[in-house]
């Protein structure tokens, strides 16, 4: 068993276990914390695949941004000692059945499918320079337009969030 495999199994088991804990924990703050672990482990997977920039984005944006945002909102809307009532068994069981069937169907079809890698191609460099060139490029393999669109979206959502969340002045 190579180091890669050990690393993958480590990350994968962290992701699965903490995902389950995220959706089943009765304390909301712990849920947020477990989510953080999941996101960081995902960043670890990105590192394994040599997408360093993406992994950095994952950690800074997700772990540093979204999870912090979530924790703040939790602190605003809940008390630390609050615990959720346990889910109704009927609902839990039916949902487990549905999701298990879905997972089974998806996984079985994934395993049956034979993915063919592109043969004889040179892997592209994934360093920050390349990412920056493509992200702001407007020729072939250039992503300037989506980048701009996303920037507008972010601006809009920022203004929207402020408008929605602020107290009425009257």
């Amino acid at each position: 068993m190579s180091v890669n495999q050990i690393m993958f199994i480590l990350f994968a088991s962290i992701i699965v276990i903490f995902s389950i804990l995220t959706v089943s924990s009765k304390r909301i703050l712990r849920s947020a914390l477990y989510l953080l672990f999941v996101l960081v482990s995902t960043a670890g997977l990105y590192f394994m695949m040599n997408y360093n920039f993406l992994a950095a984005v994952q950690i800074t944006l997700y772990a540093g941004g979204i999870v912090v945002l979530i924790i703040f909102s939790v602190l605003l809307t809940s008390r630390i000692n609050d615990r959720f009532a346990s889910v109704k068994p009927a609902k839990a069981i039916s949902t487990v059945i549905v999701t298990a069937i879905g997972a089974f169907v998806s996984i079985s079809s994934i395993l049956q499918h034979n993915f063919v890698p592109a043969a004889g191609v040179e892997p592209i460099s994934t360093d920050v320079k390349m990412v920056g060139m493509q992200l702001l490029g407007y020729g072939t393999n250039g992503y300037a337009l989506p980048f701009e669109v996303i920037s507008v979206l972010l601006l809009a959502s920022m203004i929207g969030a402020i408008i929605i969340a602020k107290k009425k002045l009257d």
């Binding site: 992701i15 699965v16 995902s19 389950i20 995220t22 959706v23 089943s24 909301i28 999941v38 809940s78 959720f84 009532a85 889910v87 609902k91 839990a92 949902t95 487990v96 549905v98 999701t99 298990a100 879905g102 997972a103 998806s106 996984i107 994934i110």
Partner: peptide, 16 residues
């Protein structure tokens, strides 16, 4: 896939 369906499960059963 596992992560996805765990998320779906959470989406359905969680109330908060």
């Amino acid at each position: 896939t596992l992560m996805f369906f765990i998320g779906v499960y959470g989406f359905i059963v969680r109330k908060n």
